[in-house]
Simulated scan of single mutants.
Amino acid sequence: MLKQTPKPELTIWYNTRCPVCDAGVSWQKRRLVEAVKAGRTEFRDINLEPAALGGFGASLEDIRRRLHATDTTGRLLVGADVAIAIWRATPGEGWLAALFGNPVALPLTRLAYDRFADLLYAWNRRKGRW
Results as ranks from 00 to 15, higher is better:
L32H: 08
T90D: 04
A35M: 00
G55E: 12
A52S: 07
I86T: 04
R88F: 01
G128F: 05
V20D: 02
L32P: 08
R40I: 00
V20L: 06
L120A: 08
L108T: 10
A83Q: 10
L67H: 08
R125K: 09
R129F: 14
E49F: 15
T73R: 14
G55R: 10
D71W: 02
I46W: 00
G74K: 10
I12V: 15
F100V: 06
R125Q: 11
E42I: 00
I46G: 01
K7V: 15
A52L: 07
R66L: 06
V36E: 13
L67Y: 13
P19Y: 09
L108V: 13
F56K: 10
V82A: 04
G57V: 03
T41W: 04
E49N: 15
A83P: 04
L60E: 06
E49M: 15
A105D: 08
I84A: 01
W13P: 11
A85C: 08
R66D: 02
G54D: 08
N47W: 05
K7Q: 14
T41V: 10
T90G: 06
C21L: 10
R64A: 02
F100S: 02
I46F: 01
D118F: 00
R126H: 03
R129N: 08
A35H: 02
F43D: 11
K127W: 03
